[in-house]
Amino acid sequence: MSPRQQHPVQLTGVRKIYGGGPSAVTALDGVSYGFAEGTFTAVMGPSGSGKSTLLHCAAGLDEPTSGEVSLAGTPLRGLDETALTELRREHVAFVFQAFNLMPALTVRQNVVLPLTLAGREPDAAWVTDVIGRVGLGERTKHRPSELSGGQQQRVAIARALAGRAAITFADEPTGALDTQTATEVLALLRDQSRAAGQTIVMVTHDPVAASYADQVVFLVDGRIVHETPAPTGEGVAAVLAKLSRTKVPT
């Protein structure tokens, strides 16, 4: 079976260089990795290691300078923006640090918006369950301006989970949440990965958040340098401490 058949998200020899000449910055340096179906993977590394760039390239939001990316079995190279948008709408959900909520819509309307745009009928019971599990069961009719930043992040997470997308990309999804809500959200992400076979790729700086994942992939200077299966918070913190003192050989 080919890697593209095995992995809903596959990167092969991906390089991403910003700028040119002496000021060029290599954000990703030949990354090859497959995120397997039904797995929850945390991506970690020191500041500037390429974590968010990897996420953006994997999701088709940024085009690699070279190398190949396959998403939901479809190679991304050569797809125009319309085709990319349709592919993401069908298979992908996002949780980014910018909540991207529609200010005129209620919590529930924001949660089901991607499904509505895709012409899909929301599963009302599941939407209610997800909103409740992120702690907003009493806020379904509130608008974003009536919510705190943490509550808006919960709406974004519920929106990502409501459509049961095959692939979810999350960039620091619990950064604006209190400890208890963060724990509940991470458990929900983990449960969805295992129960629904979703592939979840999460960038985080938090070792405790990473401990909810099935494995942690560590980047340094745009390269994958370590992988930890069945992570613990203490183990992840120890690896990060070591990597922060390590320079990848050129």
Rank of each mutant, 00 (worst) to 15 (best):
S2A: 13
P3M: 05
Q5V: 15
P8G: 05
I17V: 15
G20L: 09
S23Q: 12
V25S: 12
T26M: 07
A27G: 03
A27E: 00
A36W: 00
G38S: 06
T39Y: 02
F40P: 03
T41V: 14
V43F: 03
M44F: 10
S47F: 05
K51C: 01
L54G: 10
L61I: 13
E63R: 11
E63K: 12
T65C: 02
L76S: 06
G78K: 08
L79C: 07
E81H: 05
E81D: 14
E81A: 14
A93I: 14
T106E: 07
T106C: 00
T106Q: 03
A118V: 14
V130M: 08
G132Q: 04
R133G: 10
T140A: 12
S145P: 00
L147F: 08
R154Q: 13
R159C: 08
A160S: 11
R164G: 06
D178S: 11
D178Q: 09
T181P: 08
T183A: 15
E184T: 12
L186S: 04
D191S: 14
R194Y: 05
R194N: 03
A195Q: 15
A196E: 15
A196I: 02
T199C: 07
V203C: 02
T204S: 00
S211R: 07
S211G: 03
D214W: 06
V216H: 05
V216C: 07
L219A: 13
I224R: 11
A230P: 01
T232Y: 09
L243N: 04
K247I: 09
P249T: 11
P249Q: 08
